[in-house]
């Protein structure tokens, strides 16, 4: 009988003691959480894409509530989310221009000369470990094993015929593919930018001629004919200055290699 009573008393006292300590600790160690933080978190796209530059949606919501981050950084949510977040934070909404991903390579299987058949792990980084940085002769070319496609949370990136392609309608511009590409050939460009050369090759023209059917040979034709001086050939590669480009599309028409993409 004493044992039973003693057990009840000991357990009861211990339980009450721990309960009291916890209740007391909750008061002492109480940390204020900004109610705006959870409200902001609710509005975000919730894909944890990291496009805002913070670790996940929670991290960004925290930074916004602390006043450390602007309201328009959620690229996945776009202008609509930015407006909602700005409303919660009570500040003016200054939405940034949306960006989309762009793959600066056109080296599909029938276009870029193959160098060897690769059948190892289906991962761009793994494939790059074999000499020459990819299974194509062009060392700048897209490896085509889809690290970018796997990184995309929005089903906007796919490998088609050995080269990555962006679905501009689905792309939200989070930049996950830019991070994932081991060749650094995926870029973010403003959505209004309609012209972009889809090549990254810095090889000399004669070399490019041998190994790729469309790669930029640095012939300077676009640079000479651009009415706005917006396209410059540097390191044997045509490069567009988006701040000067007037989107006329002339360079895309005259390019002898048809490497300059025009999204009309």
């Amino acid at each position: 009988m004493t044992t039973i009573l003693l057990s009840i008393v000991v357990l009861g006292v211990l339980g009450a003691l721990f309960g009291a300590i916890l209740a007391f600790a909750a008061k002492i160690f109480h940390v204020e959480v900004d109610p705006r933080e959870s409200a902001v978190r609710e509005c975000l796209a919730g894909a944890n894409c990291g496009g805002c530059g913070y670790p996940g949606c929670d991290g960004y919501a925290k930074a916004v509530a602390a006043g450390e981050a602007p309201c328009n950084k959620c690229v996945a949510g776009g202008a609509e989310t930015a407006a909602k977040v700005a409303e919660i934070m009570g500040v003016a909404n200054d939405a940034a221009e949306k960006e989309v991903a762009f793959v600066t390579c056109s080296g599909a299987h029938d276009i870029a000369e193959p160098r060897f058949n690769y059948s190892g792990p289906q991962d761009c980084r793994a494939a790059m470990l074999f000499g020459g940085k990819s299974s194509k002769w062009c060392t700048f070319a897209c490896v085509g094993l889809g690290n970018c496609a796997r990184a995309c949370q929005f089903d906007a990136m796919h490998v088609e015929n050995g080269v990555a392609k962006v679905d501009r309608y689905k792309c939200v511009g989070c930049g996950a593919c830019v991070e994932a590409c081991p060749k650094n050939i995926v870029k973010l460009i403003p959505e209004s930018q309609k012209i972009m050369p889809a090549c990254s090759s810095k090889d000399k023209g004669a070399q490019v001629m041998k190994i790729c059917k469309v790669g930029c040979i640095g012939c300077m034709k676009c640079q000479r004919e651009c009415p706005a001086d917006a396209i410059v050939v540097k390191d044997n590669l045509a490069q567009v200055d988006t701040s000067k480009c007037i989107q006329c599309g002339h360079c895309a028409d005259i390019c002898p290699r048809h490497i300059i993409n025009y999204f009309g």
Partner: peptide, 21 residues
């Protein structure tokens, strides 16, 4: 039984303590 009680309370307590301190 007691150890379960102790561990549960301890972890809760440590979590609160760390969050603040």
């Amino acid at each position: 039984l007691v150890f379960i009680l102790v561990i549960a309370a301890l972890v809760q307590f440590v979590e609160m303590f760390l969050k603040k301190s």
